[in-house]
Design a protein around this nucleic acid. Structure first.
Lengths: 304, 304
DNA sequence: CATATCGTTGCCAAAAAGGCAACAGTTGGC
DNA sequence: GCCAACTGTTGCCTTTTTGGCAACGATATG
């Protein structure tokens, strides 16, 4: 496997050896062949690359430049071939995932960990964002795989798997509603709410839930990070309107209590796995998609 | 003139066009030829570079990497060929000169200016230093041309031209000795002297002049820069022991007065042009050497 | 003066690349 | 539904490039 022109390889060896015949020997070719390549190079470039001495060849100024460049190219080639070698068998060196924030907390790390055992050489690029940005990245090819909430239908995107998450309220264990069994949306208005900011709110499950009712919440805080919303709820400041996945870890640790909203009749919290419609995924990415599909399906039966 | 493998050029064009036939058309070859190069590349690398769609080819992950590298190599190639083009006709893109400080004041700039009119694309690298360092640079090839004072004989260096400079004292016009016509070394001991520091003193003309006489100078200041020595002398602080070349510009401006030392009988101030013995100079450098030879010879008849 | 080593060149065989025509598959328009 | 217009691919052949071998002239070394 040689990406470089034979003449350049020969040139490098001649420069290294200072002699046509020595170079030819190491290259396992006839000296005349090497010589002709050098002469052709010099003729093409219009510049002598060597000065001819009675005992051999020595680089000219032009040759020095040429040699430096060739060495650089050889390094480039080695690295490229190494990376391509990694790709062989996996289809790619890196899988770029655009995802909602909540998956990066627990589900995705565990899944990627298992994936890494099977494909040790594949790296990952995670980017978290909101639905709009995720879809944009998938569509433009900046991301191979996307996982987002409630995506609008598009033919640029191929939707692979879709699961309905439980939507409800999360609160500190000390909160009055923590003991209630079936909470309605209207009951929540009596307590302070920790809401997402305008950008997160747009298109969210909560937006549609409020639109289909006449409930007015009493906002205490707005926030552009789920992590922050959860922290505020954990501190007992109020109710957080999230889905079960968002608080999976806090539930497991008993830091938060989750109650689904009983009267919610919008198909609100759809978590969707997707990729670009017009491109086929590398093999390893396809495998990862399959694992992700399974993982999402496992989320479907209510965690609690 | 193409330094890159044909297969890589074809690949780049195919990636650009997204189609074998379109690429083949732009490359002025048959589509089958292009196709075979691509297939051969993929076979050699063991990785598919394109995914085959009914409407053409699209880059795979491996192909993206490959393309990025090839684009880089194309940029490298353009720049290299440009530089080599500059070298064509001159033999080099840069001439590296190691020289004594005093030449960089007036003689060298003027000479390089004239040289630049004839070889506009040749750049220069000037390095000033003392004899030892200059010879070292020339010998190791760090410099193409050296100009130094009183070099010890070596067979690693080829001495091209050698001129004897007048050695004497430089002083402010107001100095008592400025009016004297023939000054002896012994007379100088009566006045403060501005001497070079230990490193500059070693091997210098002054060292040998003092060694062959029993004169004791009265040092006022030591200095490691000729410029500083001259400035001190110009300010009237004392006598500076230099050669005529060192003060050529100040003499022309009337800022200093120079008096050769009459009784000096050492072949002290030899300014020598040299290059490495074991390498031949690029054409442009050879021309510059010839100009320098002439310029040095022009210094030989006393300036004053 | 002999010998060894250097780059270079002519002649010929081997290998690589290119051209042409045909084939199989998909897409888009009528 | 069929035809035209694409696509990539393959077999057969010619052209071009590259390599091997032997010999030549020149230079340095013993």
């Amino acid at each position: 496997m040689q990406l470089m022109l034979t003449g350049l390889r020969y040139f490098e060896e001649v420069a290294r050896q200072g002699s046509l015949r020595k170079a030819a020997e190491r290259l396992h070719v006839a000296a005349s062949a090497v010589n002709r390549q050098i002469l052709k190079l010099e003729d093409d470039l219009g510049v002598p690359l060597f000065e001819r001495l009675p005992r051999g060849l020595r680089l000219s100024s032009a040759g020095e430049l040429m040699l430096a460049q060739i060495r650089q190219w050889q390094r480039d080639e080695r690295q490229l071939l190494e990376t391509l070698g990694d790709i062989r068998g996996t289809g790619c060196a890196e899988i770029r995932i655009a995802t909602v924030e909540s998956l990066t907390d627990q589900v995705l790390p565990e899944l990627l960990g298992r994936f890494g055992e099977r494909f040790p050489r594949v790296r990952f690029a995670l980017h978290t964002g909101l639905t709009e940005e995720i879809l944009e990245r998938v569509a433009t090819g900046e991301a191979d795989i996307g996982i987002c909430m409630n995506p609008p239908p598009t033919r640029r995107i191929r939707f692979i798997e879709s699961v309905e998450l439980q939507f409800g309220i999360a609160m500190a264990p000390s909160h009055p509603l923590a003991q209630a069994s079936g909470v309605r949306l209207a009951e929540c208005s009596a307590y302070p709410a920790i809401l997402p900011d305008a950008e997160m709110f747009r298109g969210s499950t909560l937006e549609r839930a409020l639109a289909t009712s006449d409930v007015e919440l009493t906002p205490l805080a707005g926030c552009n990070r789920i992590l922050a919303i959860k922290s505020l709820a954990r501190a007992g400041l109020g109710l957080a309107f999230l889905n079960a996945l968002d608080v999976a870890r806090e539930l497991a640790h008993g830091e938060l209590v989750f109650r689904p909203l009983r009267d919610l009749r919008v198909d609100g919290a759809r978590l969707v796995l997707c990729s670009a419609a017009d491109r086929s995924l590398p093999m390893a990415a396809e495998v990862l998609v399959e694992s992700l599909s399974q993982a999402l399906r496992d989320l479907a039966p209510p965690l609690d």
